[in-house]
Design a protein around this nucleic acid. Sequence first.
DNA 1: CGCCGTGTTGACCAGTTTCAAGATTGGTGG
DNA 2: CCACCAATCTTGAAACTGGTCAACACGGCG
Lengths: 243, 243
Amino acid sequence: MSMAFEISQRAAAARPKAARAFPATASGKPGDGTADDDARALERIGMKLSYARNETVFSEGDEAAFSYRVLSGAIRLCKHLADGRRLIAGFVLPGEYCGLLHLDAHRFTAEAASDLVVIAYPQRQVEAMGKTMPSMRKRLEDFLAQRLESMQEQVVMLGRQTAKERVVSFLLNLAQRAGVKQNERAEMAMSRQDIADHLGLTIETVCRMLSELKRARLIALPGLHEVVLTDVEKLRALGGGGK
Amino acid sequence: MSMAFEISQRAAAARPKAARAFPATASGKPGDGTADDDARALERIGMKLSYARNETVFSEGDEAAFSYRVLSGAIRLCKHLADGRRLIAGFVLPGEYCGLLHLDAHRFTAEAASDLVVIAYPQRQVEAMGKTMPSMRKRLEDFLAQRLESMQEQVVMLGRQTAKERVVSFLLNLAQRAGVKQNERAEMAMSRQDIADHLGLTIETVCRMLSELKRARLIALPGLHEVVLTDVEKLRALGGGGK
DNA sequence: CGCCGTGTTGACCAGTTTCAAGATTGGTGG
DNA sequence: CCACCAATCTTGAAACTGGTCAACACGGCG
């Protein structure tokens, strides 16, 4: 089984914890609807892996041998600049994929933003499925389009939004992707520093903006890594001309 | 000839100046080497169009019926936000393409950043060539990869670089893409406002940074729309941890 | 010649960062 | 179970970068 061999190679390189058993659907994001068939097909060729916070899933420049689907936790896609500055291009949340298209993902380093469980798929299999299954091909294309869309949003955010707008956009985006509505609790797995590096701010500014939103009763922070949007309408109004 | 008909439709929509005759190679960027065959093949199915500064080539959301190659001048790819803020995702310089992949380009509005001459290719033909000519397929993939690369650079720039670093990066990038070396004159067709909207700065800050670089003898500005990099080494050092 | 669009420069101001304490949280070992 | 420690988060005050507002310069064109 050369496939299994490759997986354990990679696993060794990234030093994830030994893969533990998880119910196959445990952390699958609900509401995926149309994706289920493809997801199941992938599930069969994938392997579950766990990483502790801050472990590297793959590095910039690595050969893109695997794609990943997040089961729980979050991946951060980041770029480390020469002088230590860091920039996070995006997060991969539960139910989402990364590295499906070698084009994009492996230009970044992927790290566990929190304790993380993923399923890894050999890239070759994904490509093969893309060629035979039309629905899978479509999903690959959608994935790329989404990725472009989100990079674009980030460019708008970084280029033309204020600190408060950025934080609000981030929270709205997070809640939407998690399928969480007003007054529901959303997980915010990444650290404040991660958020700051994603929004092009300092950690202190992120904190201040969160506090300010809390004081204004627009959000609540039941725990360090949870948010509740208590007034989506007003948040949207603050979200800036974005988009 | 339905192709010609479609082209003039589009031309009418965008109100370009009547296409004038240009020697086929007049503004072709030299040094394209390997691309020449494909370029020539495209040239045959393309139509020359001219636009005055600020005319729209295509709008965000338009059907991507055409791809474009810039012969002279520059296209700006921009996004207009609700509140009037504007953000320029990038410029297309002479010799470069835009809209080759419907995926990306037509999420932006393309406008003439200066007086502009392009060749327009019916999208269908490009796709057809992509399927039959392997070298063309490769070029299309490269194009996408490049586009992603440049968006990424912009994200780093906007997220983690200072005003001076941004301007320096921009100038270095411009010179490199124009194939211009130290002490050679590079065209900078776009306005200061365009540059500002690309770098996420104000026009005043762009001016100040350019003046500062000029005072430091790192660049010269022989004309409003020309730059000479007089000390690429020091500029690189200023260019920040970029990449 | 004077106007208009664009670019440049200066003075002042606001938002963000930086620097510096604390406060919480989570993990470890007694 | 609690005490302690390290890491992370929060908050405050001062410094600074870049933005805003305003005046002026320059160049093309009617």
